[in-house]
């Protein structure tokens, strides 16, 4: 049988395969080293960092919910300087592309961060996390307005030659308008989706189950919603998508690719099955062999739509 070509290209970057991990669900450096050979991943994505250290939210930060979990970690991280000094030396040894996820309070802070990261050779791509739902008050905010998002993406674009990815959440009310403006402002791929706001209550204590009251829902519970966003964005915009949201096995991953995703990421499921990304990769390859698909280009967006849907186009 001829060899299967798992590689995918986004912008000028060739990824060896379409399987990656979701920011914040795979640690910062060596957390999953005992279970996964990182060099087999299409890319390694680190937890969102901010310019300055953030302590994050008080406990409890997570709560289990049906087929998923709520989290309000609050972007705890040690800041950009620590990332460059203490994380990058480890990350540089991983033989795959590195995607660095960042969040900031506005265009100026994003630009400050990007200028530093642009000098880091090992960073292949910068992912703008414009969609963390767990931040309150001043400082970093959930980017809500399309124009503001446009300004952020544009100013970042003007300051780096790295591959630029923007991560969005359905929580952004005018989602499709925002998606479009990020593309117009120069993003080269979209990461879809970040968590969806949810809530759970302990009825005996009559208290919210997480201290932030609301948190981001993730895991298989959100998969159909995530898939729908990937599908609809791909119908509307010509932009590579990194699909995520409840992907737990190769079938789930194949759904996102057939809907049009260039790459797929395992997220919360890593917590349950540390090897999940590898299971997805091996399962996908086997599926392609069995169904005689030779390349990702052949599988991607190959969704067969009913006649009556096509007629409306």
């Amino acid at each position: 049988m001829s060899k299967i070509n798992l590689s995918v290209k986004i912008g000028k970057v060739a990824f060896k395969n379409p399987v990656t991990v979701a920011s914040g669900t795979f640690g910062n450096t060596n957390e999953y080293e005992p279970y996964v050979d990182f060099s087999r991943l299409g890319a390694f994505v680190t937890k969102t960092i901010t310019l300055k250290k953030r302590v994050g939210n008080p406990m409890p930060r997570i709560a289990e919910t049906p087929s998923g979990m709520l989290n309000a970690i609050g972007l705890e991280n040690k800041g950009l300087e620590d990332y460059v000094e203490n994380k990058i030396p480890y990350l540089a040894k991983i033989k795959t592309h590195l995607i660095t996820s960042i969040a900031a309070s506005g265009p100026e802070e994003f630009v400050k961060m990007v200028k530093v990261l642009d000098k880091q050779k090992v960073v292949t791509a910068i992912e703008l996390n414009l969609s963390c739902p767990n931040i309150r008050g001043k400082g970093i905010q959930f980017a809500k307005h399309a124009e503001e998002v446009g300004r952020i993406v544009k100013s970042v674009r003007d300051n780096t030659s790295k591959l630029l990815i923007t991560k969005l959440s359905p929580e952004m009310g005018n989602f499709f308008e925002i998606a479009e403006i990020t593309v117009k402002s120069g993003t080269q791929a979209l990461s879809l989706i970040n968590t969806i706001k949810g809530m759970a209550i302990d009825v005996y204590k009559r208290k919210p189950r997480i201290s932030n009251v609301t948190g981001g829902l993730s895991g298989p519970a959100i998969r159909p919603i995530a898939l729908r966003y990937v599908y609809e964005v791909k119908r509307m915009l010509d932009i590579p998508v990194i699909g995520m949201g409840g992907i737990a096995n190769w079938q789930d991953a194949a759904e996102f690719i057939i809907a049009g995703a260039h790459m797929v990421a395992t997220g919360t499921v890593n917590f349950v099955t540390p090897r999940a990304s590898m299971d997805v990769l091996e399962g996908l390859e086997d599926y392609m062999k069995r169904t005689r698909v030779h390349s990702m280009d052949e599988l991607r967006g190959s969704l067969k739509l009913p006649e009556h849907i096509l007629k409306y186009e």
């Binding site: 914040g24 669900t25 795979f26 640690g27 957390e31 999953y32 937890k47 994050g56 406990m59 409890p60 930060r61 997570i62 979990m69 989290n71 970690i73 705890e76 890593n270 917590f271 540390p274």
Partner: peptide, 14 residues
């Protein structure tokens, strides 16, 4: 503490 991943990745059990 209530835990998520158990390996230091999710920061849910600080």
């Amino acid at each position: 503490e209530r835990m998520g991943c158990g390996v230091g990745a999710c920061l849910g059990c600080v």
